[in-house]
């Protein structure tokens, strides 16, 4: 509701302010679509800024899914705006002519091109062979161009924005998201620079995973909920776009000593194995709503695929430290036996708490005693207890697994509010 109201504000400011002679329906619709597009795209800066007051309760991955959907909508509005205006009145072709007003025309071209590039580079980043860091830099720069260019264009159109008060209100309104972008890129890294961490261990683990241990350097560390994740920066300075999200595997009971498990999925995660002990690092966060309330006494079922087991390890370790005694189940699915991440730790947890583990392999070795195949409804029926209101389900894994497990759990009667899942395919 708040989001909708904020998005509509630019439109309402201009409509309630200066009221010029009405034009035909197509032109007025085009004008409103343009103003709506400006509101939608300006709010995109707020949505994606990892502001805890906005994304805290919703979960960052959900917010980014929404950001993605709404971004495409904003782009369609940007395209529909000139199209409607021109169809309604061909005289608006003058807006595209630099001789009639070069700044107005250039800002229009800029917004059209930059927003199209923004969408294409996000939807097909991998197809373009664009590295994640470069994509982040380009995404931020294009977003800034689109919103400032869009604001400039709206002010120069001078129809609804004829009055000075309207201009000032619109400028102020769009200025706030622009300032928030500065907060994200400058003030936040500066705050992080005041709370450095030191890499204390870098260990190779099964499944090509690297375990990275960090120690708080001169501060009390970071309070987090088990299952949450942080954005990690390693190296010289926190003022860099080399920032990547990873789940904690350490228990929340040790805020000054954080462990991350990193699988080589991109350029940065491939290079983590070469990081030297003693290297400085910075953490931004914690983020995420994928967490267990260890004190609730509720039973928990964890269903993990591959690296998706990491947040669950943090939850289980925290439960152990806090002496929880409610029964728990962990279904840990992997392709091969050699890829089972933290197997020793997981098996040792089962000895010390009321935890039942089900290892599932797609490609089992001869003599394998665990489950085989993909996690589906029949397997869940076999390995899990009957569903009950006091059981929460946590699911984290690759998208195809999530797409099959979530409906399978729903088919078993699991209510949506007891099904907590996390997806990591952000871009």
């Amino acid at each position: 509701m708040v989001y909708t109201a904020l998005v509509l504000t630019p439109m309402l400011i201009v409509v309630l302010g200066h009221r010029p002679e009405p034009r035909n329906l197509l032109v007025e619709s085009g004008a409103m679509l343009g103003l709506l597009g400006l509101g939608v795209l300006a709010m995109q800066l707020v949505i994606s800024g990892r502001h805890r007051w906005f994304a805290g309760k919703l979960g960052l991955d959900n917010v980014l899914q929404y950001h993605r959907q709404v971004g495409i909508f904003g782009w369609l509005l940007v395209l529909a705006h000139p199209l409607c205006m021109l169809l309604g009145n061909p005289e608006y072709l003058a807006f595209l002519d630099p001789r009639e007003g070069w700044l107005r025309a250039i800002s229009l071209y800029l917004v059209l091109l930059a927003s199209t590039a923004l969408i294409l580079t996000s939807l097909w980043r991998e197809r373009f062979g664009l590295q994640y860091e470069w994509w982040r830099a380009i995404h931020a720069a294009l977003a800034l161009l689109v919103v400032t260019g869009g604001l400039g264009h709206a002010l120069m159109a001078d129809h609804y924005t004829g009055g000075w008060l309207t201009k000032a209100l619109l400028g102020g309104l769009i200025g706030v998201p622009l300032l928030l972008l500065l907060e994200t890129r400058l003030i936040r890294p500066w705050r992080m620079s005041q709370r450095p961490w030191k890499v204390t261990a870098v260990e190779p683990r099964a499944g090509d995973v690297t375990r990275l241990a960090l120690q708080a350097d001169g501060h009390a560390g970071m309070q987090f909920l088990p299952g949450q994740f942080v954005w990690l920066t390693v190296g010289e300075t926190p003022f860099t776009l080399q920032q990547h999200p990873f789940s904690m595997t350490s228990p929340a009971t040790e805020p000054d000593r954080i462990e991350l498990a990193i699988k080589p999925l991109g350029d940065f995660s491939r290079s983590v194995a070469d990081v030297a002990c003693g290297t400085q690092a910075w953490l931004e966060g914690p983020y995420g709503t994928f967490s267990i309330d260890a004190s609730s006494g509720r039973r928990a079922v964890f269903i993990a695929g591959g690296i998706g087991v990491t947040p669950m390890i943090s939850m289980l370790r925290t439960c152990l430290d806090r002496g929880c005694d409610q029964p728990m189940w962990l279904v840990d699915a992997n392709n091969k036996e050699s890829e089972i991440i933290f197997r020793d730790e997981i098996d040792s947890l089962a000895q010390r708490m009321s935890l039942q583990i089900v290892h599932v392999l797609v490609d089992p070795p001869p003599g394998w005693h665990g489950e085989t195949g993909y996690v589906d409804e029949a397997m869940l029926e076999k390995v899990l207890p009957p569903d009950a209101d006091d059981i929460d389900y946590f699911v984290c894994g690759p998208p195809p697994m999530m797409d099959s497990v979530e409906p399978a759990l729903r088919a078993r009667g699991v209510a949506a509010n007891r099904l907590i899942s996390e997806r990591f395919e952000l871009v």
Binding site: Y3, T4, V7, L8, M11, V15, P22, R23, N24, L25, E28, S29, A31, M32, L33, L35, L36, V40, L58, G59, D61, N62, V63, Q65, Y66, R68, Q69, V70, F73, E406, R410, A416, L419, I420, S421, R423
Partner: peptide
């Protein structure tokens, strides 16, 4: 599950916003 709701929320927001924008345009034309 939540990501499906997040996507749905995006689509619903788009439809509502579009309806408001076109409604306002209609009112402006009179």
């Amino acid at each position: 599950m939540q990501h499906i709701y997040a996507r749905r929320a995006g689509i619903i927001a788009a439809i509502v916003l579009l309806a408001v924008a076109l409604g306002v345009a209609r009112v402006l034309v009179g």
